[in-house]
């Protein structure tokens, strides 16, 4: 029943989650500077070697897992909530409000997403909260567009018309008659969203716009590592591999989820 396409990515993501949540309780020394160990490759004491300040890379990777998980969690939660709310209201009410929201969505879509996030977090100043803010500002649009389109078609379903005929108020219809049917497509969108948010956070941190030292992010670890690529390639390889594994897992699971939930692709 369970396929390896599900088990492997799912267990990788669970490890990611566990490390992110329980990281602070592990005996880690991510900021411990050990000058004698500078740039040393992997050994039995540090499984992934040390960075340019002699800090153990494995410990920093785990703290980086925390950063990327924190950002992905909040960005997806915020954009999902705001996007679904705005999209449902826009699709349900229609008229000028809908027209206004559609224009707003179009304006946001006219900017390449990552560029807007780069500009925003640049102007807001570095820091993890600003990364969450910048990525959410970019992220809600996709959810809103999807929720609006779905609401438009759900609006004319019989069960919604029946609820209207029974005198149900708008909030009740949206909450009990439309929202449950939105869940499947929104979940798929959210899953793929995690992958792009993880890459975007690492990208912003790579550009120096994300977390500030000494806090660790996979993106900033790659940036630090690029300066020592010739002598210590493990500084770039390790965070990159972890990042790619997480993104790959999310994408693989997303594909599986889409195949399961999406009726259209079953032909």
């Amino acid at each position: 029943m369970f396929k390896y396409q599900i088990i492997i990515p799912a267990s990788l993501l669970i490890i990611w989650l566990l490390l992110a949540v329980f990281g602070p309780w592990l005996p880690l020394q991510p900021n411990q500077i050990n000058l004698p160990f500078i740039l040393q490759p992997a050994s039995t004491t540090a499984w992934l070697g040390y960075d340019d300040l002699g800090r153990p890379i494995l410990d920093r990777l785990i703290m980086g897992a925390r950063t990327s998980f924190f950002v992905a969690f909040w960005v997806i939660l915020l954009s999902l909530f705001i996007g679904t709310l705005i999209g449902m209201i826009s699709g349900w009410i229609g008229g000028y409000i809908d027209l206004f929201i559609v224009r707003l969505i179009d304006i946001f879509l006219a900017f390449p997403g990552i560029l807007l996030a780069i500009a925003l977090s640049g102007l807001l100043g570095p820091g993890i909260e600003n990364v969450v803010l910048a990525l959410s500002v970019v992220g809600w649009v996709g959810f809103a567009r999807l929720a609006r389109a779905q609401t438009l078609s759900l609006k004319h379903r019989e069960h919604v018309l029946a609820a209207l005929a029974l005198g149900a108020k708008t909030p009740r219809i949206l909450r009990y008659h439309i929202l449950p049917l939105l869940m499947a497509p929104m979940t798929i969108e959210a899953t793929f969203g995690i992958a792009s948010v993880v890459i975007a956070e690492a990208g912003l941190s790579f550009l120096g716009l994300g977390v500030q030292p000494p806090a660790a992010s996979w993106g900033s670890m790659i940036r630090d590592g690029t300066r020592y690529m010739l002598v210590a390639p493990h500084m770039v390889l390790a965070p990159g591999m972890v990042l790619i594994l997480v993104v790959l897992s999310v994408n693989l699971l997303g594909d599986q989820l889409r195949d399961k939930l999406d009726v259209k692709s079953h032909h």
């Binding site: 890459i199 990208g203 790659i222 770039v236 790619i244």
Partner: peptide
């Protein structure tokens, strides 16, 4: 295609340089 979507530019670039 899956790898290409999952590998970010800022890792691919340094790797090609190495």
């Amino acid at each position: 295609s899956l790898l290409g979507v999952s590998i970010p530019h800022f890792w691919m670039g340094p790797l090609l340089i190495v």
